[in-house]
Amino acid sequence: MSMVFDLQWILYTGAIGLIAIGLVGIIWSRHLFRIILSLAIAEAGANLMLVIAGYRLHGHAPIMVAGVWPEQMVDPVPQAMVLTAIVIGVGIQALALSLAIRVKEAYHSLDIDEIRAAMQADIDAQAGVTGDLSQEEPSGREVIGPTVAAEEGRS
């Protein structure tokens, strides 16, 4: 019995560890690709957690053969859920990566601080709010600040 207990502990620790690594990576990374990878790691942890929830040590696959009930079966419900969760996760990761490509095309950077600054400048310029507008050139973009200010001065 103690072995079962130990194995479960190891598995749960592993799953929670993966989730923690992923979340820390999302929060602390500056590189967009690393953030998306961290998200994938965290999702793997959550999926592992679901699989463990239905796992029985020495359990058989939950398939009934010729009317014989296997002695102990693993719970099939979490496995069905994990399949769904994996598919959703893959879709979201693919979407995030394709968005990252488009963002890189627009702002020529994958550093989130630079992207955030450029995004804020864009939104401010579009709203016509000049308060936070940076006069410096945002990474790789045409100079936004002075042109907008100059146009306003003229009108």
Binding site: G22, L23, L39, E43, A46, L50, I52, A85, I92, L95
Partner: peptide, 16 residues
């Protein structure tokens, strides 16, 4: 998308 993804992971863990 990334914050929603984080949320998904947390909700899924809660469900598990």
């Amino acid at each position: 998308v990334i914050i929603s993804g984080m949320g998904t992971v947390m909700a899924l863990t809660g469900i598990a």
